[in-house]
Design a protein around this nucleic acid. Structure first.
Lengths: 191, 191
DNA sequence: CGAAAATTTGACATGACTCAACTGGAGTGG
DNA sequence: CCACTCCAGTTGAGTCATGTCAAATTTTCG
């Protein structure tokens, strides 16, 4: 029923067409326009969101009102605030759309029922989170060990599809830099 | 059979004594002395390691031979290199013991068999990784948004049990600072 | 006690930030 | 089709946080 999600699931687990069909029923299709919020700071994150089309970002504001981007989520990525979702507490993160988006959403109750009905889906989410965790560990180490210019180079190599569709100042925020610093890095510090 | 692991598991899932007993059989008890390696860079991570007693650290060396500490693991924490473990490729991380340690280890094959025999253990590991992922996201955001002094303060508040048993220069490494900078932060920048 | 490791301190260098101004393109409305 | 505005990006000058290098001091531990 949702081809892109089905393909993504089958990248990680073996599952029958019938079970996949069953799983599909737990997801709701929804569209968001560019700049709309998928999740607003202060709200409880009621859904985990799979991006079918478009690209969104998760960010947090600091005391000074500065945005710090935690994640970009283009096609086939998951977005959400897992902590808020699991504990049903107010989110400190905001998720908004950088482009018009089509998504699939599953609620907490839906996910729990899905786990009960199809235990293999618990494996799917374990693997997804495992991979996200591994990637995040690398990001932490890169932030600790590499200078800004190298981090930018790594980012461009690793996520060319993001680099090409997201404005530079947002990439700067993701990397923990000011737009000015990134601009100077891009210009290659020629003096 | 392994009380501390049993207690830890029951913090996250409901499981019968009998099943817990079954699960125990998949773990091997092992001791390491202070400074011994649980995992060396270049080796394949063959086990996920639960710390029963003691404290270890996971770190990576950069091109200049500088250590960057990814994680401390005291009692009831898991240590390992998930990527190396899952893909059976050489680890870029090293894990060594900051104190004499007692641990429980499970191999990849063992873990897969455990998932097969007791699917609820897949839930346990999903939850563990989920929590680790959530914590790591917070760390990324803290690194992006807060100055060194605040990060140190947060660390001390969050992990007093680690701060008290680990040398300062290792905490500095975890926070992405030089020992000198941490020392100045600790002295409160009094001039 | 003595050696090694950890921590502190000082002087200086540097990467990244801040503030401010400027440039150039993408809409928008007259 | 042109002014006008808005936003992203660039550039310059000065500042600040943190790093580097070196040395002194304190602590740890065999």
């Amino acid at each position: 029923m949702w081809p892109s999600l089905n393909i993504q699931i089958r990248k990680h687990i073996a599952i029958s067409d019938k079970d996949l069909e069953k799983a599909s029923a737990f997801f709701a299709y929804r569209k968001f326009r560019k700049k709309q919020f998928i999740l607003q700071e202060g709200d409880i994150c009621r859904f985990e969101t799979f991006i079918v089309k478009g690209c969104c970002r998760t960010y947090e504001l600091d005391e000074k009102g500065q945005e710090h981007i935690l994640q970009f989520a283009p096609e086939d990525w998951w977005a959400g605030n897992l902590y808020s979702f699991l504990t049903e507490t107010a989110s400190t993160y905001t998720i908004d759309c950088l482009e018009d988006c089509e998504v699939l959403q599953i609620s907490k109750q839906g996910l729990e029922e899905l786990y009960g009905e199809l235990p293999v889906m618990e494996r799917y989410f374990r693997i997804i989170i495992q991979n996200a965790f591994i990637a995040l560990q690398k990001r932490v180490l890169t932030n600790l060990s590499k200078p800004a210019a190298d981090r930018y180079k790594d980012f461009v190599e690793k996520y060319p599809q993001i680099e090409n569709r997201v404005p530079d100042h947002q990439i700067a925020s993701f990397l923990g830099l000011t737009p000015q610093s990134l601009s100077r890095i891009r210009s290659g510090f020629r003096k």
